[in-house]
Simulated scan of single mutants.
Amino acid sequence: MDFDDTAALLVIDVQQGFDDPAWGERDNPEAEANIGRLVQAWADAGRPIVLVRHDSRESGSPLAPGTPGNALKPVVAEAPHDLFVTKQVNSAFYGEPDLRGWLDERGIRQVVVCGIQTNQCVETTARMAGNLGYDVTLPIDATHTFDMAGPGGMRLTAAELARATAVNLDGGGFARVVSTDEVLGA
Protein backbone atom coordinates (compact mmCIF):
# COMPACT_ATOMS: atom_id res chain seq x y z
CA MET A 1 0.00 0.00 0.00
CA ASP A 2 1.14 3.47 -0.81
CA PHE A 3 -0.91 6.53 0.09
CA ASP A 4 -0.24 9.87 -1.53
CA ASP A 5 -0.51 13.18 0.33
CA THR A 6 -4.09 13.69 -0.85
CA ALA A 7 -5.45 10.31 0.38
CA ALA A 8 -8.60 11.17 2.34
CA LEU A 9 -9.73 9.50 5.55
CA LEU A 10 -13.53 9.08 5.60
CA VAL A 11 -14.75 8.65 9.19
CA ILE A 12 -18.30 7.32 9.04
CA ASP A 13 -20.93 7.82 11.78
CA VAL A 14 -18.77 7.58 14.90
CA GLN A 15 -21.72 8.74 17.00
CA GLN A 16 -22.71 8.42 20.63
CA GLY A 17 -26.06 6.88 19.72
CA PHE A 18 -24.28 3.66 18.80
CA ASP A 19 -23.57 3.17 22.53
CA ASP A 20 -27.32 2.66 23.09
CA PRO A 21 -27.90 -0.91 24.36
CA ALA A 22 -30.87 -1.22 21.97
CA TRP A 23 -28.40 -2.00 19.14
CA GLY A 24 -27.50 -5.28 20.86
CA GLU A 25 -24.21 -7.15 20.90
CA ARG A 26 -21.32 -5.52 19.06
CA ASP A 27 -17.94 -6.72 17.86
CA ASN A 28 -14.48 -5.18 17.93
CA PRO A 29 -14.18 -3.20 21.18
CA GLU A 30 -10.94 -1.69 19.78
CA ALA A 31 -12.69 0.06 16.86
CA GLU A 32 -12.79 3.53 18.39
CA ALA A 33 -9.15 3.36 19.48
CA ASN A 34 -8.12 2.35 15.96
CA ILE A 35 -10.25 5.12 14.45
CA GLY A 36 -8.51 7.56 16.79
CA ARG A 37 -5.09 6.29 15.68
CA LEU A 38 -6.03 6.80 12.03
CA VAL A 39 -7.38 10.31 12.65
CA GLN A 40 -4.20 11.26 14.53
CA ALA A 41 -1.96 9.88 11.78
CA TRP A 42 -3.93 11.71 9.08
CA ALA A 43 -3.86 14.96 11.05
CA ASP A 44 -0.12 14.62 11.71
CA ALA A 45 0.52 14.03 7.99
CA GLY A 46 -1.70 16.94 6.92
CA ARG A 47 -3.88 14.63 4.83
CA PRO A 48 -7.58 15.41 4.34
CA ILE A 49 -10.08 14.13 6.90
CA VAL A 50 -13.82 13.90 6.23
CA LEU A 51 -16.20 13.41 9.16
CA VAL A 52 -19.62 11.98 8.37
CA ARG A 53 -22.69 12.04 10.65
CA HIS A 54 -25.92 10.12 10.19
CA ASP A 55 -28.97 12.30 10.88
CA SER A 56 -31.69 9.66 11.22
CA ARG A 57 -35.26 10.48 10.22
CA GLU A 58 -36.62 7.38 12.00
CA SER A 59 -38.88 8.11 14.95
CA GLY A 60 -37.13 7.31 18.24
CA SER A 61 -33.73 6.73 16.64
CA PRO A 62 -30.75 7.28 18.94
CA LEU A 63 -29.11 9.00 15.93
CA ALA A 64 -31.86 11.61 15.41
CA PRO A 65 -30.81 15.26 15.19
CA GLY A 66 -31.29 17.08 18.47
CA THR A 67 -30.69 13.97 20.58
CA PRO A 68 -27.50 13.32 22.57
CA GLY A 69 -26.87 10.22 20.43
CA ASN A 70 -26.54 12.30 17.28
CA ALA A 71 -23.30 13.82 18.60
CA LEU A 72 -19.94 12.44 17.55
CA LYS A 73 -18.06 10.27 20.04
CA PRO A 74 -15.19 11.98 21.90
CA VAL A 75 -12.56 10.13 19.82
CA VAL A 76 -13.52 12.23 16.79
CA ALA A 77 -15.65 15.08 18.18
CA GLU A 78 -12.74 17.52 18.28
CA ALA A 79 -10.80 16.01 15.40
CA PRO A 80 -9.45 18.38 12.80
CA HIS A 81 -11.29 17.87 9.53
CA ASP A 82 -11.53 19.35 6.08
CA LEU A 83 -15.16 18.46 5.39
CA PHE A 84 -18.19 17.58 7.53
CA VAL A 85 -20.91 15.61 5.73
CA THR A 86 -24.39 14.90 7.07
CA LYS A 87 -26.50 12.15 5.57
CA GLN A 88 -29.82 10.38 6.06
CA VAL A 89 -29.06 7.18 4.11
CA ASN A 90 -26.27 4.58 4.19
CA SER A 91 -23.83 6.12 1.71
CA ALA A 92 -21.81 9.22 2.54
CA PHE A 93 -21.94 9.95 -1.19
CA TYR A 94 -25.61 10.89 -0.73
CA GLY A 95 -24.98 13.50 1.94
CA GLU A 96 -24.52 17.25 2.17
CA PRO A 97 -22.26 18.76 1.04
CA ASP A 98 -21.48 16.62 -1.99
CA LEU A 99 -18.61 14.29 -1.04
CA ARG A 100 -17.81 13.19 -4.58
CA GLY A 101 -17.66 16.77 -5.83
CA TRP A 102 -15.40 17.75 -2.96
CA LEU A 103 -13.02 14.82 -3.56
CA ASP A 104 -12.92 15.37 -7.32
CA GLU A 105 -12.33 19.14 -7.03
CA ARG A 106 -9.20 18.35 -5.02
CA GLY A 107 -7.99 15.55 -7.28
CA ILE A 108 -8.37 13.00 -4.48
CA ARG A 109 -8.37 9.44 -5.85
CA GLN A 110 -7.54 7.44 -2.70
CA VAL A 111 -9.86 7.03 0.28
CA VAL A 112 -9.51 5.13 3.54
CA VAL A 113 -12.90 4.33 5.07
CA CYS A 114 -13.52 3.60 8.77
CA GLY A 115 -16.36 3.97 11.26
CA ILE A 116 -19.69 2.50 12.29
CA GLN A 117 -21.49 0.20 11.23
CA THR A 118 -19.18 -2.14 9.33
CA ASN A 119 -21.86 -3.83 7.22
CA GLN A 120 -24.13 -0.82 6.82
CA CYS A 121 -22.87 2.72 6.19
CA VAL A 122 -19.17 1.82 6.09
CA GLU A 123 -19.64 -0.99 3.54
CA THR A 124 -22.11 1.02 1.47
CA THR A 125 -19.79 4.04 1.31
CA ALA A 126 -16.79 1.83 0.43
CA ARG A 127 -18.74 0.00 -2.30
CA MET A 128 -19.89 3.25 -3.81
CA ALA A 129 -16.40 4.74 -3.66
CA GLY A 130 -15.11 1.67 -5.50
CA ASN A 131 -17.86 1.96 -8.11
CA LEU A 132 -16.99 5.63 -8.61
CA GLY A 133 -13.39 4.70 -9.39
CA TYR A 134 -11.63 5.63 -6.16
CA ASP A 135 -8.81 3.49 -4.77
CA VAL A 136 -10.46 2.33 -1.54
CA THR A 137 -8.81 0.90 1.57
CA LEU A 138 -10.83 -0.31 4.54
CA PRO A 139 -9.05 -1.10 7.83
CA ILE A 140 -11.63 -3.59 9.11
CA ASP A 141 -10.45 -3.28 12.72
CA ALA A 142 -11.34 0.44 12.63
CA THR A 143 -15.02 -0.47 12.23
CA HIS A 144 -17.63 -2.24 14.31
CA THR A 145 -21.16 -3.49 13.95
CA PHE A 146 -23.92 -5.32 15.83
CA ASP A 147 -25.63 -8.70 15.66
CA MET A 148 -28.47 -8.59 13.14
CA ALA A 149 -31.60 -10.58 12.40
CA GLY A 150 -32.77 -11.28 8.86
CA PRO A 151 -35.61 -13.09 7.15
CA GLY A 152 -37.06 -16.30 8.53
CA GLY A 153 -35.33 -15.97 11.90
CA MET A 154 -31.87 -15.98 10.35
CA ARG A 155 -29.37 -14.23 12.61
CA LEU A 156 -25.73 -13.33 12.13
CA THR A 157 -23.34 -12.19 14.82
CA ALA A 158 -21.48 -8.92 14.48
CA ALA A 159 -18.25 -10.86 13.87
CA GLU A 160 -19.91 -12.86 11.07
CA LEU A 161 -21.22 -9.65 9.49
CA ALA A 162 -17.75 -8.06 9.66
CA ARG A 163 -16.23 -11.12 7.96
CA ALA A 164 -18.92 -10.97 5.27
CA THR A 165 -18.14 -7.28 4.70
CA ALA A 166 -14.43 -8.06 4.36
CA VAL A 167 -15.17 -10.78 1.79
CA ASN A 168 -17.73 -8.64 -0.07
CA LEU A 169 -15.43 -5.64 -0.37
CA ASP A 170 -12.06 -7.29 -0.96
CA GLY A 171 -13.29 -10.36 -2.83
CA GLY A 172 -15.66 -8.24 -4.87
CA GLY A 173 -12.95 -5.78 -5.89
CA PHE A 174 -14.53 -2.75 -4.20
CA ALA A 175 -11.77 -2.16 -1.64
CA ARG A 176 -8.56 -3.47 -0.16
CA VAL A 177 -9.42 -4.78 3.32
CA VAL A 178 -6.51 -4.53 5.76
CA SER A 179 -5.73 -3.73 9.40
CA THR A 180 -5.15 -0.34 10.99
CA ASP A 181 -1.51 -1.28 11.59
CA GLU A 182 -1.08 -2.01 7.86
CA VAL A 183 -2.51 1.41 6.95
CA LEU A 184 -0.31 3.18 9.50
CA GLY A 185 2.75 1.30 8.30
CA ALA A 186 2.19 2.26 4.66
Rank of each mutant, 00 (worst) to 15 (best):
A45D: 13
S56E: 07
E96I: 11
E32K: 09
H54S: 05
L99R: 09
A186K: 12
G150A: 15
F93N: 11
R57W: 14
P48V: 03
T67E: 08
R100T: 11
V14W: 06
R37P: 05
F146V: 02
V183Y: 04
D19Y: 04
G46D: 12
P68Q: 06
N34H: 13
L132Y: 13
L83N: 10
L51A: 04
E78N: 14
Y94T: 13
A45Y: 09
T145I: 08
E25L: 09
S179E: 07
E123K: 09
N131Y: 14
V183K: 04
P151M: 12
A126R: 06
A31K: 01
W23N: 06
G60W: 02
A175P: 07
F84R: 14
T86D: 02
A7H: 08
L9T: 12
W42K: 05
D170Q: 11
R155M: 13
S56N: 02
F146M: 03
A7P: 05
Y94W: 13
A77N: 00
E32A: 11
G36R: 15
E96H: 14
N28E: 01
L156P: 02
M1L: 09
P80M: 10
G133E: 04
E182W: 10
N70A: 09
C121F: 12
D44G: 10
G130I: 01
G133F: 01
V11N: 09
L9F: 14
L138Q: 07
P21L: 10
G133K: 04
A159Q: 15
R53N: 07
M128K: 15
S179L: 08
G69C: 03
V85S: 01
A166H: 02
D104T: 15
V85R: 02
Q110F: 15
R53G: 03
D19P: 06
D19E: 06
W102D: 09
